[in-house]
Amino acid sequence: MQEKSAGERIREKKVSLDTAKVKAFFDARCQKDLPYLYNYTNYQDNHPALALERDRAEKARIAPLLAAASDALILDIGCGVGRWGDEFAVHLAGNGRYVGVDYSEGLLQLAKEHAKERENCEFYCGSFQELSAALPQKYRGKVFDRILVNGVLMYVNDEDLSLCISNVKDLLSRGGILYVKESVSYGKRLTLNQMYSEELSHDYSAIYRGIDEYEALWREFFPAQDGWKIIERGEVWENALGNRRETTAYFWLVQRK
C-alpha cells in the first residue's frame, strides 16, 4: 500500500496534473489482484461487482447507438483492458477491426491476454497526444467509422486538449460517430491533485470538468456549419448505479456528416 499523501482538492481554478504521476497510478494498478478484469479501469474496489453492472448498463444504452457494419474500423482511445472490444468483436467480420490504444503497457498486457483468441482485436501503446505515432503503418492515412474516447479527457491537461480533439477529428470518417464519455462535475470544475484514495490505495489525480465546459469545447471544435452534429447526450446510467456525490458519468455522441 502506498504511503498516504495530503494532496489537493481544487475548485474552479485550472491547474495541470503531473502526467508522469497519473501514468504511475495506472502502472501500479496493474500490479493489483482485482476480482474482475473491468475493475482495473472501472475501479469500485470496495464494490467490485458494481463495475460489471455499470459496464452492462453503459453498453445496453450506448452499443445500439454505435452499431456499425461488420467491416467497420473501430478506434478505442484509452482502451484500458479492452472492455469495448468485448462488445464489438462479436459483430466484426472480414476486414472489420477493433483497434485499442492506451499509454499503459500494463493495461495493454491485460487486454492482449484477454483477447488473445480474437483476430479482429488489435492493441497498441501510445498517448492521446501522440495518437498517430501509436498506430501502425497500415492505418496511416485511414479513417475510422467509430471512435471511442472513454474516461480519458479527465487525465488530459487543458494545454493538450486542443491537440487531442484535433487528432480525433482527423481520424473520423464521413458519417462516422465519436463517443465521448467522461466523469464530470455536477457543478464547477473539481480537480483532484495527488489525493490519496482509501478505496484505490493510491494517490489519484483527475480533472472533473463541468458539463458546460465540455459543451463549449464541442461548439468550438465540432461546429454545425462544418457538418458536425451532437446526436445524443446525457448521463450514462441511472442514479442507482452512481455512488459519487460530486461527479457523474456523462456522454456525447458526435456525428460527422
Results as ranks from 00 to 15, higher is better:
Ser132Gly: 12
Val152Cys: 01
Arg29Phe: 13
Arg61Pro: 09
Thr247Ala: 07
Asp102Lys: 03
Gly85Leu: 01
Tyr186Phe: 11
Pro223Val: 11
Ala63Leu: 10
Trp218Asp: 05
Gly94Pro: 07
Leu108Gln: 00
Leu241Ile: 05
Asp27Arg: 06
Lys21Trp: 07
Arg244Leu: 12
Tyr36Cys: 01
Glu87Leu: 10
Ser173Thr: 08
Asn42Gly: 09
Arg189Asn: 01
Ala69Ile: 07
Ser173Ile: 05
Ile62Arg: 05
Gln129Glu: 15
Ala60Glu: 15
Leu192Asp: 08
Thr247His: 09
Ala51Pro: 01
Val22Met: 02
Tyr250Arg: 03
Leu66Thr: 04
Val99Thr: 03
Ile77Tyr: 03
Trp84Thr: 11
Tyr40Ala: 00
Arg245Pro: 06
Ile207Gly: 00
Asp33Ile: 08
Asn120Pro: 04
Asn150Gly: 07
Pro35Arg: 13
Phe251Tyr: 12
Asp55Ala: 10
His202Lys: 14
Ser185Gly: 12
Met154Cys: 07
Lys59Glu: 13
Cys30Thr: 15
Glu105Met: 06
Lys4Ile: 14
Lys229Pro: 10
Ser197Pro: 03
Ile147Asn: 02
His91Asp: 15
Cys79Arg: 04
Leu172Cys: 01
Lys181Pro: 04
Gly227Pro: 06
Asn95Lys: 15
Ser197Lys: 02
Gln137Glu: 15
Ala134His: 11
Val254Ile: 15
Val15Glu: 04
Glu215Phe: 02
Glu215Met: 06
Ile77Leu: 04
Arg29Val: 13
Val152Trp: 00
Gln31Tyr: 05
Lys112Leu: 01
Ala69Cys: 10
Ile211Pro: 13
Asp212Val: 12
Asp226Glu: 15
Val168Asp: 02
Arg146Asn: 13
Asp203Glu: 14
Leu192Met: 06
Arg9Asp: 11
Arg140Asn: 10
Ala51Asn: 00
Glu159Pro: 10
Glu105Tyr: 05
Glu87Thr: 12
Glu198Lys: 13
Lys13Met: 12
Ser16Phe: 06
Gln31Ser: 12
Arg83Thr: 15
Phe221Gly: 01
